[in-house]
């Protein structure tokens, strides 16, 4: 069995915390630039230009793209043939968050208690999701999630009779109600099926999919396209001052569900759609 010291996890989490906050994925940059070229509303074009300038400055000077450097959402895909040594895995992840957020001069945005508040001072704890997969590798994905967009996310337990139309209308309605709040242009992550919690998880994981990669199932790939078209017809535009570019992409994930149900979760991300991964 392959042994892996948890210090490796700490090192990778710290590195990803900094890099994801300074550099945006090329897929996101390409989409923003494509949308700027296609934008038919001058104010919207100006805002997209400033957003691109911000990406350039952040990358060149290693500065956070957004001051909200997020809650660290960490997805660990642990190969079943790996033996992790040297300490507790989740402690190692949190040590990485602590190190990355401190050394990278990233904002500490986590409060210790949801009602009584109180900043923890080092951006811990991370939200960690574990998956056991075949093989002897460990994949570490880190997605810092800002809460301007997180707050605009919704979940609804539909009856099966709602059908595709009910699902699509709900997704568009979520985006319309969110309006300018989540810093459009946004990325819309959708989870359909599973259970209440599974739908929400899939909506977040949908935000990790490369923007230019359509859903493997043609039915859902067409739905992604149709939803993007409808959302970009709402007129909200970049920052909500009108325009075509309300969303950069709609990404869907699905899972089998119960005969009685059809859960739908919508997790919204801002244009600073950050995530990175390393395989150990």
């Amino acid at each position: 069995m392959r042994e892996l010291h948890v210090d490796q996890i700490t090192r990778v989490v710290a590195k990803l915390a900094e890099e994801t906050n300074f550099f945006l994925g090329e897929d996101v940059c390409r989409r923003i630039s494509l949308c700027r070229e296609q934008e038919d509303w001058p104010v919207a074009g100006d805002i997209l230009e400033k957003i691109e300038e911000n990406i350039r400055i952040a990358g060149e000077e290693r500065l956070p793209l957004c001051q909200d450097t997020g809650m660290a959402c960490v997805f660990l895909e642990v190969g079943q043939d790996v033996h992790l040594t040297g300490g507790n895995l989740e402690d190692a992840v949190n040590e990485g968050v602590r190190k990355g957020y401190t050394e990278g001069f990233l904002r500490k945005s986590i409060v210790a208690d949801p009602i009584r508040r109180g900043n923890t001072g080092d951006n811990t704890p991370a939200h960690v999701h574990y998956e056991i997969v075949p093989g002897d590798r460990v994949k570490v994905i880190l997605a810092p999630k800002g809460f301007g967009s997180e707050n605009m996310s919704r979940i609804k337990m539909f009856p099966p009779s709602a059908g595709a139309e009910g699902v699509k209308d709900f997704i568009v309605q979520c985006v319309e109600e969110a309006g300018a709040n989540p810093c459009p242009p946004i990325v819309v992550g959708v989870g359909i099926g599973g259970t209440f919690d599974r739908a929400a998880l899939m909506a977040k994981q949908a935000l990790l999919v490369p923007l230019e990669e359509p859903h493997p199932d043609e039915f859902y790939a067409a739905m992604e396209e149709e939803l993007l078209e409808r959302i970009n017809g709402l007129g909200i535009g970049p920052q909500g001052f009108g325009g075509r570019t309300t969303a950069l992409a709609v990404k869907i994930k699905t899972f089998p569900t119960h005969i009685a149900g059809m859960p739908v979760a919508v997790n919204i991300n801002c244009h600073v759609s950050r995530h990175g991964e390393v395989v150990l």
Binding site: A58, C183, V272
Partner: peptide, 13 residues
């Protein structure tokens, strides 16, 4: 007034 959300490195200048 509204500033551009997410353009934080630019605004800091």
């Amino acid at each position: 007034f509204a500033a551009i959300g997410g353009a934080a490195a630019l605004i800091a200048r």
